[in-house]
Nucleic acid binder design. Sequence first.
DNA 1: AATTTATTGTTATAATATAACATTATGTAA
DNA 2: TTACATAATGTTATATTATAACAATAAATT
Lengths: 130, 130
Amino acid sequence: MQKQTLLTKNQQIIFDLIDKSPEPMKAYSILFNVQKKGIKAPLQVYRALDKLVEIGKIHKIESRNAFIACHNSSCQVAKATAFSICEICEKVTEISSAGLSKYLANFKDKDGMKYSKYNLEFFGLCKKCR
Amino acid sequence: MQKQTLLTKNQQIIFDLIDKSPEPMKAYSILFNVQKKGIKAPLQVYRALDKLVEIGKIHKIESRNAFIACHNSSCQVAKATAFSICEICEKVTEISSAGLSKYLANFKDKDGMKYSKYNLEFFGLCKKCR
DNA sequence: AATTTATTGTTATAATATAACATTATGTAA
DNA sequence: TTACATAATGTTATATTATAACAATAAATT
């Protein structure tokens, strides 16, 4: 079996929903929204989410237990993600900054260790909420 | 009432436990460990954890739903945290790098927005696991 | 066609976290 | 020092997030 490029039915349904959403979606909210399409159980949602995260089509916002579609072609490979999160309206924006990703990918810890995989969440107030 | 500097009984019990632990601790593992000291309910644990996070004595490792004691005096104010996480043994190390924190505190997104609050988690293999 | 691998469906349950309410302790101010 | 306000605690119940285990189906590989 060659590496999956097309999404399966459940993955496609769930990706479409997340991709259309203006805000991060939580697993059980996703479940509620896809029940009419025949996806009835939490596990069906979590399995699709796991796969979509793995192939880089969506990202998990760890501090919110929620998922957003990737809008940055380079993360498909990198698993190196950065977001800004508004602490009032909870708006989440994926940050695509060559400078930032370069800095973080080249960062060395005290042992001289580098990390190609990371997740960064910035917190503050968005334009509207300031 | 002046700003709390000393920990309350429950906070102290739970902080001591986390501080002694060589690895991040999860809430229900904490609960199990402090039941002999009279802390019987999840909520008692979560309340102490919330407060300890708020005052910067511990940090939550978001990707693991676990808590570690702070070993970096500057985060008490900053809420600007960075960790490395070993994907095999799950060892977590808090990163204290003046360069990194300066870079992130000065980072500006596309709207020119700066963030004093952030959480960064690096993933890779620790020395032992490589 | 046989084999392997990925995906799906389903039920049950585990793990993580908060709501709501009553009580007790502690700090502040009249 | 009594009243008031605020913070912390105790308790029961419940909400939310996530996975285990097993059976069945579908798709790619040989």
